[in-house]
Each structure stands twice: as C-alpha cells, then as structure tokens.
Design a protein around this nucleic acid. Structure first.
Lengths: 124, 124
DNA sequence: TTTAGAATTGGAATAATTCTAAATATATTA
DNA sequence: TAATATATTTAGAATTATTCCAATTCTAAA
C-alpha cells in the first residue's frame, strides 16, 4: 500500500458520512496537498475492487464510499438525498432463501422522506 | 401528452430490455427523425417523475428505464452488466415488517455472475 | 385568434469519471 | 548494491451522461 492509498483508506475509515470522491479528495489534500484527484479515484477503485471498502451508487448523486462493516442497507431521503445506515435484520437469510439461485452480494436502498424534509413538505 | 412523449412511452412499454436514454433516442429517431436527445431526457424525466415509468440506477451504467409492472427486483451480472428482472416473493411485506419506519419505495439489486460470464471466467 | 404557458430543438455547458503519457516510486533480480 | 522491471502517481485531456439555455414551435384557454 502506498502512502496515498493509506491516507485515503484512513479518511474513509475515519468518517461516518458516506463520502464522495470529491469530498475525499478535499480531505486528503489537507494532509497531502499535492495528491491528484486521479489518484483518489484510482485508490478508491483499488480499495473497493479488493473488498477493503465498499462503493455505493445512488440515483442523482456521485458514487460514495463506505468502510466495510457488518452488512447493512441504506435509507435515502427522496428530497434532500441524505443517506442513513440501516440494518434490516434477517435480510441476508431471506434473500438467500428466496432468490432461487446464487447471489454474490446485494444492494438494498429504501426511500423515504427524512423528518426534516417531511416537515418542510407539510408547510407547502 | 405530446407526440414525443407518447412515442417514448411506447418504446419503453414495447421493450423487455432495460433501455438507456441513448438506446431510446436511437429507437425514437426511427419513427421521428428530428426528435432531440434533450427531448428524450425531458420526457423520460417527466414520465418517471409522474410514476408512469420507472428509472433504474446501477453502478457503472447509465440510468435505465423500465415500464411499470408489478413490483420487481433486479439481478445484475458483475462482469457484463446484464440485467434480469426477478421477483423475490414476499420482500415487500418483509421490508415493511422489519424496517421500523415508513418506507415509500425500495430498490433491491442482487449481484451474481451470469451463466455466460461464469463459463468464461472458468476458462481463464 | 390572440395570448400565455408548456414543450421541443440544437447546441453549449456541467459533473463525474476515466484515460494517457511522462515522471516517480517500489520491488525484484543479477 | 546496481540494474531493471513493475506499479503508482501526477496533471491534464478526454469521455460519458446528463442538464441547461435561448430561440422557436406547439397547445390550450380565454
């Protein structure tokens, strides 16, 4: 692992947000001002391809990166795009039992209005 | 509904593939050669925002559009990106029971290697 | 049948990401 | 250790998907 990849890994691991490449780039530059955006993309690709971090794809947002934890799912606000980790207990088993064939992995995203957006929607 | 939107809707409804905007544009031009790509995007936005068709977002692919059918899920090949409709029986109920709060909708994508890619991976 | 609002067109603009080629670093071998 | 091969980084150009914009055209309503 190069210094750059170590840095990027530590940024992803050190945050609970679901950071985008751009956000990671900004954070990385504070500690290594000469790092290139392409290196951030390269490293994120390397890290996620090797299962060290995970990459998340949502509609209308750039891809985001997450540390590898216990498997979990995501809840996204349809209005502001805020992302929250959630855990649907038993989903893995459920999918394996019901999919009818081999699954390597899955992505589950639930959509709702977050409390803030629900409140402002009510005022319109 | 304008002629353009009617045409785009009929293309989406007439296909079992999960078409991208570009593919829909190419199909649309055969019947209406002057249609603009921007109109295709506009119309797809209008149709999906109004729940007439649905928009699908997958990693490493442009967004795709699908006719509205019974709720269903997707199986994507990690190698070639091929998309197949699947139905996980009882998933709606399961999510409602286990999510612990109100869900407006959900996206579930399962990842695997399709038979073709599994075969060629075995030959490497 | 004017008039307002909405939609379409074509091209420019933007955002996210990948590619490229040169330079640098790292690892491997003699 | 020196020489060489391999991998990574850098900076900027290129690409892809999508949105924006201004001018025009259509549609619908008064």
């Amino acid at each position: 692992m190069t210094k750059q990849r170590e840095l990027i890994l530590s940024i992803v691991r050190g945050s609970d947000a679901h950071l985008s490449a751009e956000e990671i780039y900004l954070a990385a530059r504070e500690q290594m001002p000469t790092i290139a955006l392409a290196t951030v993309y390269n490293s994120l690709k390397y890290l996620s391809d090797n299962g060290i971090i995970s990459r998340l794809t949502f509609a209308d947002q750039p891809d985001r990166y997450d540390k590898m934890l216990v498997p979990h799912d995501h809840m996204v606000c349809s209005a502001c795009g805020a992302i929250r980790d959630i855990r649907i207990e038993g989903i893995d088993q459920f999918l394996h039992d019901h999919a009818g064939e081999n699954i390597d992995s899955y992505d589950l995203t639930l959509h709702h209005l977050c409390p803030k957006c629900r409140a402002s929607a009510a005022n319109i």
